[in-house]
Design a protein around this nucleic acid. Structure first.
Lengths: 248, 248
DNA sequence: AAGTGGTCTAGACCACAGG
DNA sequence: CTGTGGTCTAGACCACTTC
C-alpha cells in the first residue's frame, strides 16, 4: 500500500509512534516495542526503525538505554507546530568576552529559600562566592554574581583574586571530572537592592535582570548554582530558535 | 584529568573533520570531500561517514545538499565545551495556558527605532495590535503586548475582540501558508512606563521583564514582531539546556 | 545467559543538481 | 548524462542491563 505521501518511511513510522504515544497506547513510563519487534510489525529494516527512534528522541518523547529499552518520557507533543530549538545563546560567548572578578568566598549552610533553590539537604556546607563581571575596558560592571558550589566540589581551586574568563562550572568539570549535562535557567525582573546597587554603582530600586542558572550532572544533582543581577541598562539576553523538524 | 573511553569511529571521524575545518584545510565556503571519497580515505563504510556528517550538521558547521555536496558554513566551533540546547521553553505552553485579549489594532508606518527593530523599509505599512495576556482566572494580567505584523499579512483575520489561545504567528502560518523557521528573542529589564502600568494595574516605575520576539521566514524576513512587558512579580522566564553531544 | 540498544559493514535505488 | 546526498536493506559484533 504505502503511498501515504512524499514522506520517507522513517518519518511515517515516527509519526505513527507519536500518535500512539499521544493516544495512550504507550503510556508515559512504559517501554516501546524493541527495535526488532518494530522491524517485524512495520516490515522495515532496523536502520529505518532506528532513524524513526532518533526522531522521537530528538523531540524528547522517549529515552533510550542499551540493555533496557525505549521508555516513554512524556506524551505532550502539544500541536505538531513549531517545536523550536535554540541553536546559539550567549551562554557560549558570554564568559569568553567578559571577566568575572571574585570578591570573596566563604562556606554556608543553606537554609530556607536558599536550601530549596539549591535542592540541598539540611546541614550540607556549600561554597559561596561573590563577584562582579566586567566587559573589557568598560568602566561599569555588567552584573553582580553569587555562586554556590556543591559541597563535593567546594575544594575548587583558582577562584579567589582572579579575573576569571572561564565559567566556574567548567573549572569544576576540569578539576573533578564531573560533567554538566543540563543547565536550567530562570530569568525575571527585580528591583536592584541597596547593597548590590552600591557595589555596581547603579541606582537603587532601578530595574534589573535577575538570572539564576542551575548546573546539573547526569543524576540531576545541582553541581553549581549562580545568580546574576544585571542593571537593566547594562545587559540584555538574546537567543535564537530554529525550527528543528518539518511539520508533518 | 578526565578519562574518556574510546570514542566510536563516527565521532573520531567527525572530530578529525572539525579539526581540519578549524585549521583551514577546508575553508569556509568550500566543499568537503564526498561521502564516497571519505569512505575511501578513512576506510569506513558510508553509514559511518554519514553519521559523522550528521555531527557536523548538528554543530552547524556544514550544510548538505543532494546533487551539490557538503559545504563549510563556518569554522567557528568556539570551545568544544558545552554546546547546549534548550529542550523545552515556555514558548510552547505559554500560549496554550494563557489568553491574549486584543485591545485595539491599527496600521502604522514604522520610523526611526521601530523601523530598525522591524527591519522595515521606509513607507511600509504594518499592522499594529495591542493586547493584554491573562492566565486563567487570575485577576491581574501577566503582560502588555504590542504586535507588529508584516504588511504582506496585515489582512490577518481573527484578532480583534477575541481571546486568543493561539500564537499570532501560527495564525499567519495557517492563513497565509508562510512558515516561520526562526524565532529571535531578546530579554531585558525595564522600568514600567506610566501607560502600561495603568493598563496592567501595576506600580509605575517598578521593574518589568521586556521580551521582544522576531518571527522570521525562510528568507530571514520579519513576519511578525511582538514586544511583551511583564511586571516583575507576575512572570519569570524559564528554560533548560541539555548537552547535545559529548565532549571529545 | 538472554535481550537491549549502539555501532558498523556492503551493498542498493532514488531525487536532484550540475554540465 | 554523471555524481551528489537521501533513503533503505540484511546482515554482523559489541557493551550493557537484567535475570
Amino acid at each position: 500500500m504505502t503511498l501515504m505521501g512524499p514522506q520517507p518511511r522513517y518519518r511515517q513510522l515516527a509519526q505513527t509512534l507519536i500518535n500512539e504515544i499521544e493516544t495512550g497506547r504507550f503510556p508515559v513510563g512504559s517501554l516501546l516495542p524493541t527495535e526488532f519487534e518494530l522491524c517485524e510489525q512495520f516490515g522495515a529494516s532496523r536502520s529505518t526503525v532506528r532513524e524513526a527512534m532518533k526522531q522521537l528522541v530528538q523531540r524528547g518523547l522517549v529515552d533510550r538505554q542499551a540493555g533496557v529499552g525505549t521508555r516513554v518520557r512524556t506524551a505532550n507533543v502539544s500541536s505538531p507546530y513549531r517545536q523550536v530549538m535554540t541553536r546559539l545563546t550567549d551562554l557560549q560567548r558570554y564568559s569568553a568576552q567578559t571577566e568575572l572578578k571574585i570578591l570573596n568566598t566563604k562556606t554556608v549552610q543553606p537554609a530556607g529559600e536558599l536550601q530549596e533553590l539549591l535542592k540541598s539537604t539540611a546541614g550540607q556546607t556549600w561554597l559561596r562566592a561573590e563577584g562582579i563581571r566586567n566587559f573589557g575596558r568598560r568602566t561599569e560592571p555588567i552584573c553582580f554574581t553569587e555562586v554556590y558550589v556543591n559541597p563535593a566540589f567546594r575544594a575548587i581551586q583558582g577562584l579567589e583574586g582572579r579575573a576569571l574568563r572561564t565559567p566556574i562550572f567548567m573549572l569544576i568539570e576540569q578539576q573533578f571530572g564531573e560533567q554538566v549535562v543540563e543547565v536550567q535557567q530562570q530569568i525575571r525582573a527585580v528591583a536592584l537592592g541597596a547593597r548590590i546597587a552600591k557595589t555596581l554603582n547603579a541606582p537603587p530600586r532601578s530595574a534589573a535582570l535577575w538570572i539564576c542558572r542551575h548546573y546539573l550532572n547526569r543524576r540531576g544533582e545541582v553541581i553549581e548554582a549562580a545568580i546574576s543581577t544585571h542593571p537593566g541598562d547594562r545587559f540584555s539576553y538574546a537567543e535564537s530558535f530554529v525550527r528543528d523538524w518539518e511539520v508533518t
